[in-house]
Amino acid sequence: MGLLSKKDGKLITDPLTDNNPITIQVLGICSALAITAELKASLVMAIAVLFVLGVGNVVISLMRNIIPSKIRIIVQLIVVATLVIIVDQVLKAFQYELSKTLSVFIGLIITNCIIMGRFEAFALGNGPWKAFLDGIGNALGYGVILIIVGFFRELLGSGTLFGIPVLGDAIEKTGVYSIGYENNGFMLMPPMALIIVGLLIWVQRSKNKALIED
């Protein structure tokens, strides 16, 4: 159980590309789009989902033989809601301004389809170690997309990364701004997140022809 076998390794690498929760499985879109205006928010959301999915997968997997089938959705919801409450309280305690930015979307991790989807598809039928790896893999796949979208939106929208100006100073007109470059404020608006994810899907499916729909 110490070493990662090849099959276990696939549990982590598959969701990063070929079975990506956002672009292929079409899960977890809501929060992926709404909070990616800042790279920091994207990173924190990715970590939050990593925690909830990892721990949640293990808990559900440990309980999988004693959950009655009729109420399994309710049990899953309770497990997720509890973990999200923990994340929310920790975030409010240590990163208050960020929790204000993320506001409702931390709560919406509960209904994040990735989490319920992985519970149903994997944790209910597999052992705790595999379930943990699957949770980590899917959360990483989700996090990768979030970080890419957040990167482009923040860079092109405000010229900063993690709040640090990287293209020069917009007011003093140093760096790239001196030749007339302007921040594309539109990138910070919600619709651009949709378009960026659409373009990411285009790139991904061009590289891997097997994923193209009819």
């Binding site: 619709p191 499916r205 729909e213």
Partner: peptide, 20 residues
């Protein structure tokens, strides 16, 4: 629609345009 955009990709982009 270009093959790689068919289905999900073009839906995202159209939704983005509607959002605009």
């Amino acid at each position: 629609v270009p093959p790689a955009l068919r289905g999900l990709g073009i839906t995202f982009i159209i939704t983005g345009l509607m959002g605009i």
